[in-house]
């Protein structure tokens, strides 16, 4: 089995990025980026804004030529053999753009003419896939952002790609739209498509991706399965106890539990806003939670709530760059 899976992973590489570097002007924007994306997986590209995500994506689709390194799609060099390589790629770079003075259908026809073997029937197929058939003959200028996003995905799927590249796809979508998109991407991957998704939100990558590359300041810090990267790092548990003072003293006496006094340093604002005034934030292993609750209850302390919180992207970075020189 193990042997088989190794062979499989070699054969199924759809996108391979090898030591790509990019210099714009005199400045190195991308120092060293290497990763592979395989068939049937959702691959996350995680990094804060300005880390070089979009620059990298632009290189993947030949909008920018790398200064060094090779990018291959299905074995073809994207920057040397565009016509071969880009046949296998559907992409949305930054915003989903479209000709606003054309209808959705006319937009799809326009891009269908740029590739062989896309007929009316295929256009209708992708329209149905993204469920845009109600408004497809309206001008794009009347579309909402969500509809433009869907039109962009339809356009990307038009050429039956093997690799789908989506740059921050949930930007500007409402929670319902984000959920739909997530299911949709998962479905595409299950059908064998390799999906490359960039994001600056760890939670989004956790919900969506199988593997992830983490990029910071133009360097890939780590590549691996999402759970591994997240669970290797510290987890936070928020306690809502009554009375607070006694609870805090019990918690601080536990081995392997660190009570954090300044929650704002380590947690997202959204989480802090959601927790009570008196909440106690601890850094600890989740295995100990059950036994601590038992101790608290037997000491007569009321446990009103216990929340497990994953670390934020910033903390992952802190952990990963620990000991490294920061340039």
């Amino acid at each position: 089995m193990a042997e088989g899976s190794i062979l499989k992973s070699q054969d199924d590489v759809v996108l391979s990025v090898e030591h790509v570097k990019k210099k714009i002007g005199r400045k190195w924007i991308i120092h060293d980026v290497t990763f592979d994306v395989r068939e049937g997986e959702v691959f996350g590209f995680l990094g804060p804004n300005g880390a070089g995500k979009t620059t990298t994506i632009r290189m993947l689709v030949d909008l920018i030529k790398p200064t060094n390194g090779v990018i291959r799609v299905c074995g073809y060099d994207v920057n040397k053999n565009q016509e071969q390589a880009l046949r296998f790629v559907g992409s949305i770079v930054e915003n989903p753009e479209a000709y606003t003075y054309l209808t959705g259908w006319e937009n799809l026809e326009h891009f269908a003419r740029m590739q062989r073997g896309i007929d009316r029937q295929r256009i209708q197929e992708v329209v149905d896939i993204v469920r845009l058939d109600q408004r497809i003959h309206d001008k794009v200028s009347t579309y909402s952002l969500g509809m433009r996003q869907r039109l962009g995905i339809a356009q990307a799927l038009l050429g039956r790609p093997k690799l789908l590249i989506l740059d921050e796809p949930t930007n500007g979508l409402d929670p319902k739209g984000i959920k739909e998109l997530r299911q949709f991407i998962r479905q595409l991957a299950d059908e064998g498509l390799a999906v490359f998704v960039s994001s600056h939100l760890l939670s989004e990558i956790q919900l969506l991706c199988d593997r992830v590359a983490i990029i910071s300041k133009g360097r890939v810090l780590a590549v691996g399965p999402v759970e591994e990267l997240v669970s290797e790092n510290a987890q936070y548990v928020i306690w809502d106890l009554s009375p607070v003072g006694e609870g805090r003293s019990i918690l601080s006496r536990q081995a392997g539990v660190e009570v954090i006094s300044d929650a704002e340093e380590v947690l997202d604002d959204a989480i802090i806003a959601g927790m009570g005034q008196e909440a106690i934030v601890t850094r600890m292993d989740e295995e100990h939670v059950a036994s601590i609750i038992r101790q608290l209850v037997s000491a007569g302390i009321e446990v009103k709530g216990v929340h497990k919180i994953n670390p934020t992207l910033e903390q992952l970075f802190l952990k990963m760059t620990e000991g490294e020189s920061i340039d």
Binding site: V61, D62, V93, E97, A98, G159
Partner: peptide, 15 residues
């Protein structure tokens, strides 16, 4: 200006 150049140049057609 409209950003559609990105779509135009990421299709499998030489520039």
């Amino acid at each position: 200006t409209s950003g559609t150049i990105k779509m135009l140049l990421t299709r499998p057609v030489k520039r």
